[in-house]
């Protein structure tokens, strides 16, 4: 009883904290402050048609770096946890059934298409919705489909970690090139700006997004693969 009333109290505290936000909410009619600056000058300063990408990659590049680091740490810790538990009793009895033939064929047909969709999403990150994170998630889903349709299949851990390391190092390296050649860390002016709204525009944003996409994709694939491998024992 005491516990329930305490919980209710906590909820009421939260409600009281957020209620002023709801109560005093007023609809805006135009952008103000920093958003207005991004909207009006983003086109000249960054050259990306997708302003969200401009904010994520260039204006707030450090946030992205921190995020990639957090994701890397999460993936590494998960790998560590699951590796440590591999010393448990191994079971030779196969608990995997063969998937239905239709699912195997469909996955063979669909996986290349999904991979291509992922590549499309992160290459066009500066023009259409999407970018490295979404593209990476789509690529990880493609590998997850592969693992689901053929449970016995073994994935090499080495390839995943090599791709991840190379793209991570290149990402930091491009950021440092920005310090040397242009205005600051992760500045995208190290390459020519190109014509606004075409594939080869916005300086280094497409390259940064390709690297982020490969890195996020390999990290998420690593998480899924580790979980899958941990199903095999015991």
């Amino acid at each position: 009883m005491l516990r329930n009333s305490l919980i209710l109290l906590v909820l009421l505290g939260f409600a009281a904290a957020i209620f002023p936000l709801l109560h005093s909410y007023e609809a805006k009619d135009a952008l103000t402050g920093v958003a207005e600056h991004y909207a009006n000058y983003g086109k000249e300063e960054v050259g990306a048609a997708n302003l969200v990408s401009a904010v994520v990659v260039t204006y707030r590049g450090f946030d992205t770096l921190g995020e990639v680091t957090i994701l890397f740490l999460a993936s590494a810790v998960i790998g560590l946890f699951l590796k440590a538990s591999e010393t448990y009793t191994k079971d030779t009895r196969s608990v995997f059934f063969k998937s239905t033939e239709i699912l195997v064929t469909a996955s063979r047909l669909l996986v290349p298409m999904i991979l291509l969709l992922g590549v499309y999403i992160f290459i066009n990150g500066h023009l259409t919705p999407g970018g490295g994170f979404q593209g990476g998630a789509v690529i990880a889903s493609a590998f997850a489909l592969l693992l689901l349709s053929r449970p016995q299949k073994h994935f090499s851990h080495k390839v995943i970690s090599v791709v991840e390391s190379i793209s991570g190092i290149s990402f930091v390296f491009i950021g440092l090139l920005g310090v040397l050649l242009a205005g600051g860390f992760l500045d995208n002016h190290i390459l020519a700006m190109g014509k606004f709204g075409t594939l080869l525009s916005a300086g280094a944003i497409p390259i940064i997004y390709i690297l982020i996409g490969l890195k996020v994709g390999s990290e998420l694939t690593g998480i899924v693969r580790n979980l899958k491998e941990s199903q095999k024992e015991g």
Binding site: P112, L116, Y120, I123, T198, L199
Partner: peptide
């Protein structure tokens, strides 16, 4: 079909990507 436009960079990128993916995964 996804891109909807036919400029040179798009076609070149598409050729490269759609050659690499079947080579590795198919």
């Amino acid at each position: 079909l996804l891109n909807g436009t036919f400029t040179t960079p798009i076609i070149v990128t598409g050729l490269i990507v759609s050659l690499i993916i079947p080579m590795f995964f198919c």
